[in-house]
Simulated scan of single mutants.
Amino acid sequence: MTTKLIPLAIAMLIAGSASAQQVVKIGHVGPVSGPNSHLGKDNENAARMAIDELNAKGFTINGQKVTLQLVAEDDGSDPKQGTAVAQKLVDAKVKGVIGHLNSGTSVPASKIYNDAGIPQISPATTATQYTKQRFPGAFRVVANDAKLGGTLGKYAVDTLKAKNIAVIDDRTTYGQGVATEFVKGAKGPGVKIVGKEFTSATATDYTAILTSIRAKKPDLVFFGGMDSVGGPMLKQMKALGIDARFMGGDGICTEALGRLAGDAVGEGKVICAEAGGVTGAEQEKVMSDFRARFKQKTGIEVQLYAPYVYDAVMVMAAAMQKANSAEPAKYLPELKKIKYKGVTGDIAFDASGDINNGALTLYTFKGGKRSKMDVIR
């Protein structure tokens, strides 16, 4: 009887060990508290949706069924909190990280992931510094600030015919970066940058800087920052009688901007760009289907980055399958050469980890709602 029990006990231990090995942890970081929480929750919801769908389909690696587990952390858009939760994910032995949202948290956290050998795919980080560090495991599925800001600067001059331009940024890594690139792109005969001002990501009163700008009679104001500041700023611009177009990057290019600005958002007054974008009837259908599924699952509309988060998870999972391993050192080479057709379009990375041929989608606001204008590359 004893001899029969011993093999049985060993078999049970082996089975238990195999079961434990079948859980693959993937980290996600975004600001689910603070002024950007609506965007952070949007991202986390999309990551959970992707993980749930993969598990429901019976996700396998090297022929073995595995369970993907999302380990979600909140960085509050704060760099110190961002590095703290990055270390927490490393200690939790995640096999990859999706995040962060803000450049200001993603850039310092990326060194921690790099030192631990953990791949990171950001769905929203646009600061050029992120990939300029040349960390082998750092990727992004959106265009960077050089393309985002530079393209908006060129559009402001060539298409909107702006001549007197004022620039404001929120002093964050993202805000300063996109504003700097905008100024580089806003070149042309008779074009003047009539004022450069700055605020903070947590400020609520912009009267002083807007009064200074009003005296310079700008026909366009560019803001480098997020919608939580951009919306109230538009209200104060209207109250001060500043009749100028308002332009910004993906940080203000959200459905929430219309709510935050109220009637100050105007009709066609705001021009913004979202990093990413799809063209063609087939791809438009894929994106529309994603948005419908997202709303059905979460009960809310996509805010901004959810499709890119979803694709980032799927790309990481695809690389693991191609490598027949969830170990970072083994699937990283597959991630570098991945070619994946996602809901946001074709995804492949260049040698720096930037997305190849990244698209931008231009939007304005009509009736308080975001309205697509064009997709450019």
Rank of each mutant, 00 (worst) to 15 (best):
N164E: 14
K161L: 05
K147S: 04
Y174F: 14
Y174W: 13
A166S: 13
I165P: 00
D170H: 13
I168A: 10
G177A: 04
Y174E: 02
Y174M: 05
T173I: 03
A162F: 04
I168F: 14
Q176C: 06
G153H: 05
G149F: 08
K161A: 04
Q176M: 15
A162I: 04
A162E: 02
A166D: 11
V178D: 01
Y155C: 03
G150A: 11
A179H: 07
K163Q: 14
A166E: 08
K147C: 04
G175A: 13
G149V: 01
Q176L: 14
T173G: 00
T173K: 06
L152D: 00
T173H: 00
A162L: 08
T172W: 10
L160W: 06
V178K: 03
G177C: 02
N164K: 15
L160D: 01
T151E: 11
L148T: 01
G150K: 09
D170F: 12
A162Q: 02
A166P: 01
T172A: 13
I168L: 13
L160C: 02
Q176P: 03
V157W: 06
N164C: 11
I165W: 13
K161R: 11
G150Q: 07
T173E: 05
K161T: 00
G177Y: 03
K147L: 14
A166V: 07
T172P: 01
K147F: 14
T173V: 05
V157M: 09
L148E: 09
I165T: 02
T173W: 01
